[in-house]
Design a protein around this nucleic acid. Structure first.
Lengths: 210, 210
DNA sequence: CAAGGCAAGTTACTAATTTCACATACTACC
DNA sequence: GGTAGTATGTGAAATTAGTAACTTGCCTTG
């Protein structure tokens, strides 16, 4: 198939597939059918086949998918078969937790810069990384070849952090701050706010209770 | 309109509307049109009107929506116009960060119980809350009238934590652990994993670079 | 007090996503 | 080496979501 436009829902699901396939690999599973994977991911089997078809033919008819190969193929398709260099802005509670989060390195996202505008935090070393002044960000982003910025500032400073990152030529931003960010359309912004999911839960529960 | 089945995409958007309306309220904006709100939320104006129409008529024709009233109406529609009592299982880095997160209380989600199975952590007080043994969870959940469980354990202990919560009659689970959870269908599970969004970013950037 | 402007609510349409069903191709076994 | 079984890949059908166009009703102004 190898289509040009791929729905973002597909991308989200592919991320799930990779995760679930990873657990299967750890459990020594060598081959998996779309049906088995579908059950594990709680989606429709055709959905999986179609999602994969956007990128190529990864399975063997009559057999299924080789787990290891499929992981490799999906990761390559998503562009996560390499290291992404990131910088984090805003060393508060959340920022610290993320800096200490081992999973980042494990999944290929290396945090190579930590920034804050609070003079008391500058110079502090967290998880082997020295906190730098946000004003010097653009110098470092270029030098360190950073492509993704992570914003963990308070909401009122999110846009300023974003501006610094955009100015420095970052291509994507993951924003944890509860604030909308304006960015040129060649800079991709993703919002993380688990309260939206809590709202979903609250709604589902409320609805079910009637 | 007042339809019965509401798409989950609508719920997600309503959560965004509430957030953006909150900022407008702070900026002393009294009335907003679907067009203005749409611009701020980066969606289509008809989309907003349609999303709201699922729940009732909240606007005034020829005028727009009264910001304060609309916030109230959406919150009531979503079921977040009240306090939700939650319990957190897994007092690691992330668990601690969430326990210290003031926004929970601000948004009406009160964390009234913290649990861990590590004896060294039991008894510790975080943000005014004493960490309890996970095994005693079911007694407390019933006593404290907890409806939502938050899982921040390592992945291998996520299902066990979920089982404890389900057994205690929790109606919804917000799972931060990178693990799929099986639950009866009357218990709603939402997954939080910002790596999926990082994958999306990586994909978008990769695609744009070609 | 009437008429016009304006924005919500609604209906009709278009586009997209998901599901289904079948043909294809591979493996294994006889 | 052929045949049966099985699970993929795919095109078409069904469903769902999103957009645009229209109607309704409120507010303001002359």
């Amino acid at each position: 198939m190898k289509s040009d436009h791929i729905p973002s829902a597909t991308i989200q699901r592919l991320a799930v597939y990779v995760q679930v396939l990873g657990w299967m690999q750890r459990d020594q599973v060598k081959v998996v059918s779309s049906e088995a994977l579908a059950k594990a991911c709680d989606v429709n089997p055709s959905q999986i086949r179609k999602d994969l078809a956007y990128f190529g033919e990864f399975g063997v008819r009559g057999v299924g998918y080789y787990v290891e190969d499929l992981i490799t193929s999906i990761k390559r398709s998503l562009g996560v078969d390499r290291v992404w260099r990131t910088a984090l802005v805003g060393v508060g509670n959340l920022g610290r937790a993320l800096l200490n989060h081992k999973e980042f390195k494990a999944r290929g996202f290396h945090i190579v810069g930590a920034y804050d505008c609070d003079p008391f935090k500058i110079g502090e070393v967290i998880s082997g990384l020295e906190v730098m002044c946000t004003k010097t960000l653009s110098d470092w982003v270029k030098e360190l070849d950073i492509e993704i910025g992570i914003i963990t500032t308070p909401p009122e400073r999110a846009q300023r952090a974003a501006n610094h990152l955009i100015e420095s030529g970052v291509k994507g931003i993951l924003n944890f701050a509860p604030a909308r960010i304006t960015a040129p359309e060649n800079v991709f912004v993703e919002y993380v706010d688990f309260f939206h999911q809590l709202y979903s839960l609250a709604f589902s529960i409320t609805l079910a209770g009637q």
